[in-house]
Amino acid sequence: MRHEVMFAGFGGQGIMLIGQMLAYAGMNEGKQAVWLPSYGPEMRGGTAYCIVQVSDDPIGSPVVANPMNAAVMNRPSLDKFGPEVKPGGLLLINSSLIPDTSKRTDISILNVGCNQIANEEGTGKAANMVILGALIGATKMVKPKSIEDMIEYQFGKKGKRKLVDINIRIFNRGLDIGKTSVKDRK
């Protein structure tokens, strides 16, 4: 089984970070993983994106033009990558920053108020954790516990216990939204 996802948003929204956390989480479950970022000047405030693949078998092409899953955190990313999602795939949209949604009917669309939810929990900065949670909830790409371990690793190493707890809480709110959406679809 091979999963693929493209994360996209503004530089500074933590796009690369959630991509890396997902890749590491997959790796820690003993799976193959590839994280391929966009890089260079386009990272300075522009649209940043990365592609993550997690697979039981060796991964061939690190490049995926039409990903099965995409998570877009800002408007330009929706315009650029929304049309690229593979038919039958899943598009997660950060509805806090993107008032519109995709008009596509051949894919599943999940609008998530990432910034709003993160703000409710006390830190708007962790909007990326909401979308990551929603993705995991909807796709079961990796075990939620593996992501929680990565949150622990990422923020715990800086001795920021509080940050770990908040991020796990926010991740789980996203996770619930993802899980619920699957039930709704059935």
């Binding site: 890749a23 790796m27 590839v34 994280w35 970022p37 490049v63």
Partner: peptide, 10 residues
Amino acid sequence: DGMIGQMMEP
């Protein structure tokens, strides 16, 4: 190539 350099894999 740039992909090898930037890509993350186990």
